[in-house]
Nucleic acid binder design. Structure first.
Lengths: 328, 328
DNA sequence: CTGAAAGCGCTTACAG
DNA sequence: CTGAAAGCGCTTACAG
């Protein structure tokens, strides 16, 4: 059934039917109701393609997620996607997923070039992000989850900097001095912010940073194990893990070395996924609502697409969850 | 730039341009090459919407995933999605995600009713699945990952039945008799198959099943803990977990009760996600390639959409991975 | 308040 | 081998 069939059946023009459906343009109340009633009874659904072609819109948004995630990021992206998906259907969009790697954004390019989406949500941002570069040139509305270097890019994120700083501060105030940090790839802007938060806390508390207990770009399991053994020799009092993937390897290494948490060494994480939910002892960590973040990013993108005013930069909150793993 | 611009620029008709691009219909080699060259140089990309409208196709497929997954299923669905996404872009489709719950498939209905997809991949199947019911009525091509009751539905799955049976048999042959099973929701057909595989193994080995050590529909953490304590009293020799979410709770409970694996009791899982990768001791389990499964389901759906012959029922393999947790 | 007509950017029978 | 024209199912200035 098309708009044409309805028009014929109701003896009116398709213009009128279209107006009744869209609510745009003047139309008599009775006429509108007649159309709406007919549509309802006959279960008519407009063809999204035709509507899109006429309006130069697809009612799709693209969600770009990395293919090379690790397991903890996974639950982050999944929750994000969930939030995006809910908000999108509320706003009458659908979500097309596009998986990219750090060095290959051809899937994203194809999606945009083929004009299959009205806008893009970038699930993560990198330093010199090729996706950001590409999207700016393509001139398609997009928003970034996570901080983008380019401040003209509409972006939204949890306040990782403040969170990391607060958690670090807390531990410093407990009197911990050999407070080690093991971190992932510095190409990820979020990790840069976490490092910055850590450094800020030392400055704020006027305590000198000991660079020898900071390990960045420690991405592989082996490098993490090495770092942990190093830190044990250096008699670190606490290990801060930049994310949960790192935290899990740290915990496993400590267990293998028969070092007890929190008795022998304390451990905390700058990110808490559901992965550590069941760990014993429970791990002190920051906590973020990825669903909320996803939903907010979707709302922001819709604002961009539909040319409404919107804050260019939004920081969402976090929660500091103190657990067994940092108890004295 | 549209097909019209190209036609004008090259002094040919848009029919010809269209033919050069699609490769359909007779066209002179020189003309085709001229068009292709122009397109390449000017970076023309056809408008997917217009193409779709003309052909009554969207070049989108929908991937339906449950919103109420648990963490281990998560990595399954994610890998599936990855496989689907790769294969889809190879076949020139894009993937729209649609999240549903067991009782609410409105998102899926909206997607289909709005005609935004050419076909659907169901990420999981249930008993009396409302999604299957709906899709059959809607008359849209779809395939199910996992076994559907209705054998007319094109479906594809790993051979969970054979896998569970083989793993169970192996343990029986080791001489284990009090071989307990803790399982999730029996509304999930995959769990029915796992149970069946377990039972088959007993029959094949002519050993009587002890129903008192079989716990099905044990979904909550609390119920799992109860089951484990029960089983310890009953002096079970080994606990088979239907999936990894269960396995993790079983392992945690055992640890709390200071029961050692595999010394005091053995543990194995019918599904291995990346979650247990780092567990010590390593857990004996079946292993499936979810990416491969996703890719295969996508290929199958494309066959259905494009009306090619295709096997209605495909079973993919599995791997039995023997680990520390079942050692004597 | 309502409608005829052009347009969105493609495809495809039909004719030549 | 190539093209004019109709069509896919909507929207939207324009006219009345």
């Amino acid at each position: 059934m098309t708009i044409d069939d309805i028009a014929r059946e109701l003896n009116i023009s398709k213009t009128t039917v279209s107006r009744a459906i869209s609510g745009k343009g003047r139309i008599g109340t009775k006429t509108r109701e007649k159309v709406l009633k007919y549509i309802n009874e006959n279960n008519y659904r407009p063809n999204a393609l035709a509507k899109g072609l006429a309006q130069s819109r697809t009612f799709n948004i693209g969600f770009v997620m990395p293919e090379d995630y690790n397991l903890t990021e996974l639950s982050f992206f999944q929750n994000c996607m969930w939030g995006i998906s809910s908000k999108a259907s509320e706003l009458d969009y659908d979500v097309i997923i596009s998986m990219v790697t750090e060095n290959n954004i051809s899937r994203l390019e194809r999606l945009v070039d083929n004009q299959k989406v009205d806008g893009i949500i970038l699930g993560r941002t990198l330093e010199n992000d090729p996706a950001v570069e590409y999207l700016k040139n393509a001139g398609i509305p997009f928003v970034a989850i996570g901080a983008a270097e380019d401040k003209s890019v509409p972006q939204i994120d949890n306040d990782h900097l403040a969170g990391s700083s607060e958690l670090t501060s807390l531990l410093l105030k407990e009197g911990i001095r050999k407070l080690a940090l093991i971190g992932g790839s510095m190409r990820h802007i979020v990790n840069q912010n976490r490092l910055k938060g850590y450094e800020d806390a030392f400055k704020k508390n006027k305590i000198a940073i000991d660079d020898s207990v900071i390990y960045t770009d420690t991405c592989s399991k082996i490098r993490i194990e090495e770092a942990v053994r190093d830190l044990l020799l250096k008699k670190a009092e606490c290990i801060l893990c930049m994310d949960d993937a790192i935290c899990i390897h740290v915990l496993n290494t400590l267990e293998n070395e028969a070092v007890r948490v929190p008795r022998d060494i304390k451990v905390a994480s700058f990110y808490n996924s559901r992965m550590l939910e069941n760990h014993q002892p429970a791990i002190t960590s920051l906590q973020f609502d990825a669903m909320e973040l996803g939903a907010a990013s979707c709302r922001l993108l819709a604002d961009c697409i539909e040319k409404r005013e919107a804050a260019n930069q939004t920081l969402l909150g976090y929660q500091l969850v103190i657990n067994e793993s940092t108890k004295f």
